[in-house]
Every structure is written in C-alpha cells, then in structure tokens.
C-alpha cells in the first residue's frame, strides 16, 4: 500500500512539473519578439495591419496573456495542442506521427547502452587491470569526448557510403514490400547506425559508472560476509554485488533521458531519421509556434515518464526506497 501511495505522490508531482514546463514554454514564446501573425504574414509575402489584426483575432492572440495561457493549458488537458499552419495539420496528429520513430531510437539506444554497459562494467570490475577494463576506460573517454553528430557522420562514411552495409538515411525503404518480418528487418537495418551513434555516449557513461560502483561494492562488508559464507565467486559477483551496483547505474540512466533526447535530435539530423527531432528542427526554422510548443511538451513528457519508470524499477530492486 505504502509503495502505491508513494508512487501516486510521484505521479502528482510529475503532473505539477509538467504544468510548470507548459507555463514556462508558453511564456517564453510570448516574450520572444514577433508572433504567429508575423510569421504567417511573412510566409504570405507581407501583409498590412488590418490583415495582421484579423489573423491575431483568429488565433486569439489579441486576448490578455493569462487568458491565452489558461486556454492553452485547458486545451492541452484535452490533448489539443493547437494547429500547425506550416504543416496544415493539428499538432497532436503531427507529433503522434513522428513520436514512434523517436521513441524507437531513444529506448533502443538506452536499453542497449544499459545492458551492454552493465556487462562491460561487471567484467572489467572483476579484473580491474584486464583488457576489458582498459577497453572500458578508453570507450568511456571516447564516448564522452566525441561529438555525437561527428561519430554519426564517420559511421555513415565507413559503413554506408564506402561498404554499403547499412542504408544511408531514413527509417524504412519505401520500395520494399512484404510481410511484417520483411519490414521489421528493414527498420532494424536502418536503426543500426543511429542506435550505435546515440548509444555510444551512454554506453560509455554506464559502463564506467558500473565499473566504479562494482569495485566499490566488491570492497564492502557484506561482500566479505558472502565470501566468509563460502559462496562461489559467481554467486558473490552476479548475485550479491551486481544487484547492489545496479541502483546507481539505473539512477544515472534515469537522469539521462533529457540528454538522450538531445542526442536524438542530432542523430536524427545526421541520419534523416523521421522523428520528433527532425520535426523540431524544421518547425524552429519555420517558427511554427504551436508545433514547437507541442514538441517541447512531448519531450518533457517523455523525460518525466522515463523518470517515473526509473523510479519504479529502483523501488523493485531496492526495498529501502520508499519505506522510512
């Protein structure tokens, strides 16, 4: 019961947080020089004051700021994020079209980075001076220091342009026809390089942290107790030590969702991945305010949901969280 109550409190906080994000975004847009009417008139090749006023009235831009904010928040509650004049589509629809591609990229990269990162971390902690350990150190330095878009371009040059192992751009090949598995393989092939590019940063982060916490845990009292019980090394490491070093790694992963999305924006740009990042970039250039607001909202939502999931996983692993 206590666990569920605590989790509901977290959800309540998340909703408040999300509302705050909405208010900040909306106010920022409002503060910026120029508004939707200016942008529309520009795209029409200029307009006189009357038409501008007409557009402002149509979009409700002549109302006081707080009223506009209130009606925007009200609309968001009904999942109406406004209308994009640039794409001539409701923003919600626009975003829902693009969201799956981004989620696929972000979650595949996160999950793979986490799993492989933990594996590498454990192996290198078992032999702190071994080959894997040095590899993890190097990988961590590389992953942290290389700009993600540059890594992506290098991979493109290496594996798509020179040896044609993987497609150059996009998420699927429109010329392909066939059943589910044909398309599955097609998407998977497109996904490989973007996921490697995006995952490399986080793989570096997680493997390094996992190595460090494993080393620390392996020196702790309860590991000595486990050894004094005569347990096999295998049990000591994979049961007692690993479970204890997972929490910090998962906590870190939870904090990275915002960074993963940022990375995804760049990776999508490099690989022309049809996700939110590409949409964001285009709408920012076009100053398509409703779409920009919608994307900011959805990415904050993804981060918050990611955090909630992390919180839930941590509670499952560690009985100490949430009980006082």
């Amino acid at each position: 019961m206590k666990v569920i109550e605590n989790f509901l409190i977290r959800v309540a906080y998340a909703v408040i947080l999300l509302t705050a994000v909405l208010i900040l975004n909306f106010s920022m847009m409002h503060l910026a020089p120029g508004d939707v009417a200016d942008t529309i008139s520009q795209s029409m090749g200029g307009a006189d004051k009357e038409i501008l006023d007409q557009i402002r009235a149509d979009y409700g831009l002549d109302r006081p700021f707080l009223i506009q904010l209130g009606s925007y928040i009200g609309n968001v509650l009904t999942f109406d994020l406004g209308y994009s004049f640039f794409y001539n589509t409701p923003v919600t629809e626009l975003i829902l079209q693009r969201l799956p591609a981004t989620l696929l990229l972000v979650f595949t990269a996160q999950v793979l980075a986490l799993i492989i990162g933990v594996m590498l971390g454990v192996i290198s902690a078992r032999r702190p001076n071994g080959l894997t350990s040095h590899f993890v150190t190097l990988l961590a330095l590389f992953g942290y220091s290389a700009p993600v878009f540059w890594t992506g371009i290098l991979l493109l040059i290496g594996f798509s342009l020179n040896v044609h192992w993987f497609p150059v751009a996009g998420m699927r090949d429109v010329t392909i026809s066939g059943g589910f598995w044909v398309h599955f393989v097609d998407v998977a092939r497109h996904l490989v390089l973007p996921v490697i590019t995006l995952g490399s940063i986080f793989l570096a982060l997680y493997s390094r942290l996992c190595r460090a916490t494993m080393l620390e845990v392996l020196g702790s009292d309860y590991i000595r107790t486990a050894k004094a019980k005569g347990l096999h090394d295998r049990d000591v490491i994979y049961k007692h030590a690993l479970k204890n070093s997972l929490s910090p790694v998962i906590t870190l992963a939870g904090l990275q969702f915002s960074a993963v999305i940022s990375g995804a924006v760049l990776v999508e740009a490099v690989f022309s991945w049809p996700g939110l990042g590409t949409l964001a970039f285009q709408s920012i250039i076009a100053r398509d305010t409703p779409t920009i607001l919608g994307i900011l909202f959805f990415s904050a939502l993804v981060v918050i949901v990611g955090n909630l999931l992390t919180d839930l996983v941590l509670r499952l692993i560690d009985p100490r969280i949430g009980t006082k």
Binding site: D221, T225, G230, L231, H240, K243
Partner: peptide
Amino acid sequence: IRGNEIGMIFQEPMTALNPLF
C-alpha cells in the same frame, strides 16, 4: 571450509548484511 567449518561474525552489523536480500 568458509561458512561450513569456520563461521565468522563481523563487527558492523549495519553493513555486514546485504541490504537487498
């Protein structure tokens, strides 16, 4: 032998047990 023929009790009961089991 460890844990079987020789048992050991440590100083710090707060840290001698694994918190997650």
